[in-house]
Simulated scan of single mutants.
Amino acid sequence: MELILLRHGKAEDFHPGGDGDRALVEKGIKQSRQAGALLLKLDRRPDVVLTSPRLRAKQTAEHFCEAAEMPGPVIQPWIDCGMDPETAIKELAAFIDFERVMLVGHEPDFSSCVEWLLGVSGSGVEVKKGALVAMEVHPPAWHARLLFLVPPKLMR
């Protein structure tokens, strides 16, 4: 399985309704659409897009899907802030029949997941807002090989 991580785009710094209601700003919308356009151009669109329930992640996933010309995302509560690698792997087992699966979520969860899957915990991996990370993962051991990490600045 190819696992693609897309960190949500740039969002509001504050929302009176709380962290879960922070919306994307224009830059975040642009980042999300650029990621979708890139994977469409490279013919590497995921088979399914799974997203955190937080507004900024849902909006990122929706803009990505629109730009990538694919069906909308599926909300998965386990991708919310605080996702740990072990939980992610257990939940991803349900999607094992897909060739490419995308998760849209948050930091520091994604960096921890990348480090855990690559076996390089504590190495200082940081997934920037709007960045794409793709890994080839091999169940049942769930070890991975990095395919690419593209920061949003290179998607312009």
Score class of each variant (00 low, 15 high):
Lys41Ser: 12
Glu99Gly: 04
Glu62Leu: 14
Ala141Cys: 07
Met155Val: 08
Ala23Trp: 01
Gly130Thr: 06
His63Glu: 15
Pro53Arg: 00
Val101Ile: 08
Arg7Ser: 08
Arg45Ser: 10
Met83Thr: 14
Ile29Phe: 10
Ser121Val: 13
Arg100Thr: 14
Leu149Cys: 10
Trp78Ile: 06
Trp142Gly: 04
Pro71Gln: 10
Asp109Lys: 01
Val48Ile: 15
Leu24Cys: 14
Gly119Thr: 12
Phe95Ser: 02
Leu146Cys: 06
Val137Glu: 06
Gln31Ala: 11
Asp84Cys: 03
Asp43Val: 10
Thr87Gly: 04
Leu117Glu: 03
Met83Cys: 14
Arg100Lys: 13
Ser112Tyr: 07
Met155Thr: 11
Lys153Phe: 09
Glu136Trp: 03
Gly9Cys: 14
Glu12Asp: 14
Ala35Thr: 11
Glu2Trp: 00
Asp97Glu: 09
Glu91Phe: 01
Lys129Asp: 01
Val125Thr: 14
Gly17Phe: 02
Leu40Asn: 02
Val49Ala: 02
Thr51Leu: 05
Asp43Met: 05
Val114Ile: 12
Pro108Arg: 03
Leu5Cys: 01
Ala131Trp: 00
Ala94Pro: 01
Glu91Asp: 07
Gly18Asn: 12
Leu55Gln: 06
Leu39Asn: 03
Val127Met: 07
Phe64Gly: 10
Asp13Ser: 08
Lys27Trp: 06
Glu91Ile: 00
Val25Arg: 11
Asp109Phe: 05
Ala93Gln: 09
Leu154Lys: 11
Glu69Tyr: 06
Ser111Thr: 08
Gln31Trp: 08
Gly105Ser: 06
His8Ile: 02
Trp142Leu: 05
Glu126Lys: 10
Val74Asp: 00
Ile29Pro: 04
Val150Cys: 03
Phe95Thr: 01
Lys27Met: 11
Gly20Ala: 15
Asp21Ala: 15
Ser123His: 11
Arg56His: 06
Ala131Met: 04
Val125Arg: 03
Gly119Ser: 12
Pro151Leu: 05
Gly18Cys: 11
